[in-house]
Write a protein that binds this DNA or RNA. Sequence first.
DNA 1: GTCTATAGCTTGATAGAC
DNA 2: GTCTATCAAGCTATAGAC
Lengths: 202, 202
Amino acid sequence: MFARHGVYGVTMREIAELADVDTALLHYYFESKRGVFDAVFARRADVLNSERMREMERYETENNGRYELEPVIAAFLRPVFSLNRQGGQGWRNFFGFVGNLTSASELAELSAQKFDPVVKRFIAMLRKALPDADESDLLWSYHMFCGSLAIVSMDTGAIELLSDGLCRSRDSDQIEPRLVKYSAEGFRAVCARRQARRNTRK
Amino acid sequence: MFARHGVYGVTMREIAELADVDTALLHYYFESKRGVFDAVFARRADVLNSERMREMERYETENNGRYELEPVIAAFLRPVFSLNRQGGQGWRNFFGFVGNLTSASELAELSAQKFDPVVKRFIAMLRKALPDADESDLLWSYHMFCGSLAIVSMDTGAIELLSDGLCRSRDSDQIEPRLVKYSAEGFRAVCARRQARRNTRK
DNA sequence: GTCTATAGCTTGATAGAC
DNA sequence: GTCTATCAAGCTATAGAC
């Protein structure tokens, strides 16, 4: 519900009704509306964070010191799409919810804080895959990448409307490889100005 | 205010107070809260639409039948950044507001409807710049592009936090060329699979 | 732990004086 | 056109019976 209507667009009554409990019970367990919100967020965010850390560690142990852009991005994205595919509606909602967080500025801080260590690590890997990149080029690229990831996670029906049903926002298999390609070449175009665009491996 | 807190995060009283009028007056002129929202949206959306149409027409008359990706994207983006630079805070807020619309799903439809003719035309130009593109590749790319545009328009402080002040969301001069490059190569990577990646001009 | 009942406030909207 | 005053409905949150 937070994913679809934003934090202010949902009431405790609606939450209670959907959960088939009383509003008083929500306050008993979560204290306040913000408490519900934080709990919803934290539970899955922690899982996502550890999955991402695991994927990035795995990449590093398997590719001793060699960093290539596409697989680095793929490692960061894999948990998202894997959970989208196998995690059911709950996880799909969560990613929409996270995509939404960028909107309400007071909550953007919360998510930034929660994801900070993972993001920092991801950016460090990007930096190694793009060693000549200017720092602000790299960060702007990451920012644009986040926007793409957010919008494909959101499931607002925009792509269905635009494509007249040809594309579907639930279709992780269609989205994941396109997002990797799109982003990787985007990063290269912005960050790799001073090096050959084709052959990045030395 | 809509840009920063979303539609439900703002009250008529807050709007009235900022405008230094009474809430009754808001209802007198706009009938309902939705009326205020629609008016705020329509006024600037119409301007943006005609500016974009003008830029795209100009491109077509100047480049008789030849379509290249970067300048096509640049034409579509130019009004956004131009108004961001010269339009003052009102226009900056508007673009954040539009970026926000993708969130609340019931309003996504509104913006999709309002922007539809312009978007359709833009996509038609992209199709000519990428003649071998698969239709779903093209539409997914446009969708990811929208996400990047939305996030750089939103001014939530995320990039400032991430970059520790190095990058600033207000800095159109930094963003515009990067967004053009990032998106153009993204489009190519996804859409131009069956053609040479370097030399698109036949 | 779970409910009923309700406090206390804020919301969008309106009626009516001027 | 612009105000004051106020409405009914909705909200979050809590007190207290069970």
